[in-house]
Amino acid sequence: MNQVISQWSHANQERAGKILDAYPEKRSAIMPLLYIASLEHDFASPDAMREVAELTGVTPAQVLSVASFYTMFKRDGVGKYLVSVCTSISCFLQGADEVLEAVEEATGIHHGETSEDGRFSVEHVECIGACGGAPAVQVNYELVEGLTPDKARQLIEWLTDSQPEVVLTDEMQQLFGGQRSFDWGSSEPEGAIAPVPAFGPYGSVGEDR
């Protein structure tokens, strides 16, 4: 197994090792490892990027170059709940701008900002593939479809009050969602524990298998 960063949690060290082994070339692991490093450092901080560089045998500048190309590696810190409001064409046609306004109002912050208490970050994003359930919002990349401005406000209030440790897409959809892109089928107890996609191999899943 490849060498990993020793101050990372044991689980993340193990994940990192597996990820490095999953590719023919180490450099391919930059993006997955950036997610793990973002969990360890709360965001894609310079230290996080330096660690990824070390693990993948490239320079920190090369990691920065990659990290800054993508919108999901947050280099300026991010709140506990990252609320991403889709304002792309299909959601726009269904009133996404009003949903964004409601979210901004309820959190008191605007696009690209993080609340002072570190609880929320808000951003408007381009299409997140939920056009059939427009307007759509993601919290830590977990999806809610068919929101209205009112429901969006309630969603933020609920996050503020109940502060879930794990953000579950099914739960949010049930409580605040409406029209869906398609029948979601059965629900499952997995979700995000941080503003990083909740994907087992990269960490961040609520009830990891």
Binding site: P46, V58, T59, A61, Q62, V63, S65, F69
Partner: peptide, 21 residues
């Protein structure tokens, strides 16, 4: 010496070095 790189994308693309490197 891969120390000078492009950062950001689209209209925001720029040349940068890693902070303090």
């Amino acid at each position: 010496d891969a120390l000078l790189t492009f950062t950001e994308r689209g209209n925001a693309v720029q040349i940068q070095t890693f902070p303090n490197e």
